[in-house]
Structures are given as C-alpha cells and as structure tokens.
Design a binder for these strands. Structure first.
Lengths: 301, 301
DNA sequence: CCATGCCATAAGTATGGCTTGGGGGTCGCC
DNA sequence: GGCGACCCCCAAGCCATACTTATGGCATGG
C-alpha cells in the first residue's frame, strides 16, 4: 500500500471527484486518475464508482478512507510534534554535571532555560567529569559540564565537542583558628604549608593537589580523602587538616569555623561544556548550551 | 511530512543503522541517507545521531518513530481489509428485487452465496423494477433483479448493465369452481375470457394484461388492482375475478380455491439482473451476480 | 597499521509520475 | 434537440525525483 497514493485517494474522497482532487492538489486530472487506478489494480477491488458528476466510494473505498484518514492524522501529528521540538515548545535535555557545578551554576542555568523555553525539560545527573564523558559517549546524556585542572589533559572521546566555559579559582581552606587564616595578613605561600595535614578531594582534585605541592617543593601529607566538599570542610573546621577547594564549591556552601584564603600562583581549574558534535542540530540541547554559557560567562574567572 | 520517507526512517530505526536499513530495503546506503537528510531538513531537528557503529535515535527520532509505527500499522491494516474484500472474506451487497423474486429465487441465491462466501453479507430490499433502477442509479443498491413483459422496453439508465436472466411464464389464475378450471380440459383461449372480471397487478403487469387482451381482441374489465399476489389469489378464490400471475409468484404461494392454467400464446415475462457497469470490479457484487445466475439458470423458462 | 565497518557528498542515470492531447459519456440549458 | 460544460479514460512524451555509482572521512578491532 503506497501511502502517497493513499493520501491522493483521500483527497478524491474529500473532493467527491477526481478532477476536484486534482484541482486541490494543483495537478491535472489524469495524474490523480492514474494514482487511483494503480491503487485499484493493486487492491483488486474498485475503490470508487465513476459517475457523470464525479465519483462515489464503494464499500472498499469507504474502508480505505478510514485508514487514509488515520494515516493523515498521524502524519499531521508527527509534523506538529517535530515542530514543537524544533521551536522549543517541547524537549528534554539530559545534563550531566559535577557536584559543585550542580549546586549553583546548573540550577541557575536551568531556571534561565525555563524562563526562555517553558516547555523544555532538563534532567540533571550528577557525575564527575570522567563519568559524565562516558554517559555522553554511551548516549545516556546530551550535555555535560566538566572541569579539568591545569596540566590535566581532558581525555577527548571521539564525536564529542569540548567548549571552554570559564575558570574556577582554587582556594585554600583552613580552620579559622589557623595562624594564616587572617585575611588581613600577608599573602599565603603554599610552601609554608608543607608540614600541614591535607585533605584531598576527588581523584583529579587529589592529583592536582599533589602536582601543585610538588611545584612548591614538597609532598603533601594527605590524611583524608573525600569528594564531598561539605565533609571536607567539616574535617577542616575540626582542625583535622587543610585543603584546596574550588570557588564554586565554596559559593554553594562554606562551613562555619573555616577560613578561605587565596594563594598567589595557584592556578584555577577550567570549566567545559561537552556535548556530541551534532548537538547543535537538537534545539533543546542547543538552548541548554546557550543558557549554561550565559550563566557561566560572567562567572568566576 | 512525506509518508514514504517516514517509512524509510522507520526502517532505519528498526535496523539501527542507515546501511542496515538499506540492506533490508534492497537499496544502497546513500539512498536511505538522502531520505533521512530530507526528513531532517524539513523537520529542522536531527532525528538520529550518527555514531561509528550505526545511528541512535534522538528524542525527535523517538517521537517520530511512534508516529511511523502507527502509520505502518494502518497501512498494513488497509492492505488486509482490502484483501479480505477482494478475496470475498468480507463484503456487503445491497440487493433490490421485486416481490415474487424476493420470495423464492433471492433467498435461494442468498443461501448459495452464503455457502460459497460466508463472510459476504447481503441486504435485500424489495422494490418493483422502476424503483430498483432508481436505487441503483442513486447508488443505494448494488444489484437489482427486475422483469419486463414482452413489448415493454425496459428503460435503460445510463451506466447500468442489464443481463437476461431467464423467463418467467405468465399463467391464468381462476377460481377452481370456474368452468375452465379443469386441467384436463381443452387449452384455454384468452378470448373466451372477454366477459370476465379481471384483477390487475402492479402497474407494469396491468399494462401487460391490457396489451395481451387487446391482442386477443377485447378490453379487459379490470375491477380490482393490487400488486400483492396473495391478495390477488384471495380475491380470485372468492370468485371476485380472474387474473394473470407469473410462475414465480405461484411457486412462492398458491392459494387454496384457485386453479392455475397455461394459456397458449401467452408470452412469458423476461427476468433481468441489473447492476452498475463497474460491478464486476467489486468482488462481492460479482459473486452475488453469479449466485443469482446459478439459481436462475435452470429456472422457469 | 591496515582492514572493515559506518557515514556523507557529488554526479550520473533511469524509473516513475505528471502533463499534454486525444476521445467517450452524461447532464442541463438555450 | 443540439451544444457546451463537466465528468471520466487512454496513450504518448517529457521532466523531476529518487536511486546508483564513485569517492572520501572517521572510528573500531584484529
């Protein structure tokens, strides 16, 4: 059953004549006539009875018309649905972001996106950068917010596009009873903290800590490890160690009893938006990228 | 939304790759690729994400796939329905027949048709020939059984085909007390009945009566008129008149108290099947015509 | 590292579909 | 009643769409 012919037949039924259908289709009468003939030949049944003033549907024609109407309705619905997706009246974005971004930047971007395109739905999944990339590669996420510390080359999966999205300063976090916690004091030198006990974060953050300390001439004495920045600060507040935390995490939450101090020469981590190359063909994802960019652009640098 | 392309897309979704879809369609890979591209251009949304091992549907693709499936199901159902009609597993025939045929011939034909094609449904409507032709012309009947008396040219509507379907003898009906009622007696001469009171049937039958009597040299004294052959015979049995009735009517019903006698030279009426010219394109109607032919063929002549 | 999938693009060809130009038929109106 | 208007069909020609061939890029796996 050729669906195109089916729709031509539907037009014949609607117009009540072959010539009438041809007029509404902008064709000549024989064109429609041929389509109808092919349908009837293939079906082995007459679909219409030719009469002087037009045509009249046979029983088979009536049956076929119902199917034709159903098909036409579906085609129309398909058009509408695709248009809704294209015009951002609908759509879902599966977003993967690391925890500290999820706390502040992502909610802001989601609410911006929600203002611009109320129909677009964002589903957030918290994931550290490596896992986020794996989700993208597996097709289980559409967009990821990742970071990498200086000197850490982000592993590039094929088919994924990485876009710089600003920087996020890395800051020293001390108990507020610490001698160097005074914000009016002289700039903190990292090497002066060689004897401290350290608390390391996620794997990549721990690597960054080791590398940074090595550059300053010592090996940090890492006593604890947690990728939860609330836990990290609780430990620090109790005097169990000191650590480095990114500004995004501290913006989201700063514990009482800790002090935050910049360390000259401590390089920020860079933020990225990562998405499949063809994401700009998907309006909802493109809009989410724009919203994230707009939130990150005037952000911590 | 081009439905053909939609089905190609459905095959892509099913196969999981463009090349795979091309294989199942018996096409080359670029053919399918182009269809997909056209769909995406028209829609303004990516439908699939191209990946090294094939394609993966986007959200828009998933939405479209549901519609495509629905369309495919409908097309299949349309094929099935038309096949059922073509193979006479389904179908309806609207039959118009005059009363005496409806009583005997038509039921036999309907039961024959029912044996041959149990799925075919016949709807009978009783109608005298002129009304039956009008029903055909108006498209409210598919097939008619009609008759015409000799000398009566049946009015031919355009687009209708008339087919001879045997003859139906016209017989004299008398009260059994009538002097000429004895079946062993000499042949009845019509002119010997010039002084009788007559009962006329339907309009065309009454015309035939008048014409026949005129040929025999007299004008019949028509006292009563009814197109109901049961009523006619009731009147005759009571001695209120005599009449001419066709064999089909007498086969269906002969009243007690009447005698039936052939009249030499009294010509039979001829029976016809009438249907629209394109009826042989409609399997159910064709089958009904065959069944009626088969019942009428060895019938009264 | 080359082989083997996958996909896209560009150009050529051929099939199918639409048009043109006939003709037949019925209806309605001068 | 003839004539125009309106259906419809058929046959042949032409054009456009759709499929093919040919080529190249890219990712994966032995």
């Amino acid at each position: 059953m050729d669906p195109h012919r089916l729709l031509v037949f539907r037009e014949v039924a609607r117009a009540g004549s072959i010539a009438g259908a041809a007029r509404s289709l902008g064709w000549t009468q024989p064109a429609v006539s041929q389509h109808l003939r092919h349908l009837e030949r293939r079906a082995g049944v007459a679909l219409v009875v030719r009469r002087p003033r037009g045509v009249r549907l046979t029983e088979a024609g009536e049956v076929l018309l119902r199917h034709a109407d159903a098909v036409a309705v579906r085609l129309h619905a398909a058009d509408d649905d695709l248009a809704a997706l294209a015009q951002l009246r609908q759509g879902t974005v599966r977003l993967a972001a690391f925890p500290s971004a999820s706390a502040a930047v992502v909610p802001a971007a989601m609410s911006l996106l929600g203002e611009r395109h109320p129909g677009v739905d964002v589903r957030l999944r918290e994931a550290e950068p490596p896992e986020a990339l794996a989700l993208l590669a597996a097709g289980e996420a559409d967009l990821a917010v990742t970071f990498s510390h200086p000197g850490q080359e982000p592993d590039d999966h094929p088919g994924l596009v990485r876009e710089a999205a600003g920087e996020d300063a890395v800051l020293l976090v001390l108990p507020d009873s610490h001698p160097q916690a005074v914000s009016t004091g002289p700039p903190v030198e990292l090497r002066s903290l060689a004897a401290e006990k350290w608390i390391a974060g996620c794997e990549r953050c721990a690597a960054n800590l080791r590398r940074t300390c090595e550059e300053a001439g010592f090996v940090p004495d890492v006593r604890h490890g947690t990728d939860d920045y609330v836990v990290t600060q609780a430990l620090i507040a109790r005097g169990l160690g000191i650590g480095l935390l990114p500004r995004l995490a501290l913006d989201a939450f700063t514990a009482p009893g800790v002090a935050v101090r910049p360390v000259p020469g401590l390089r920020p981590r860079s933020l990225h938006l990562v998405h499949p190359r063809e994401a700009d063909q998907i309006p909802a994802v493109r809009a989410a990228v724009r919203a994230l960019r707009d939130v990150l652009a005037p952000a911590p640098g």
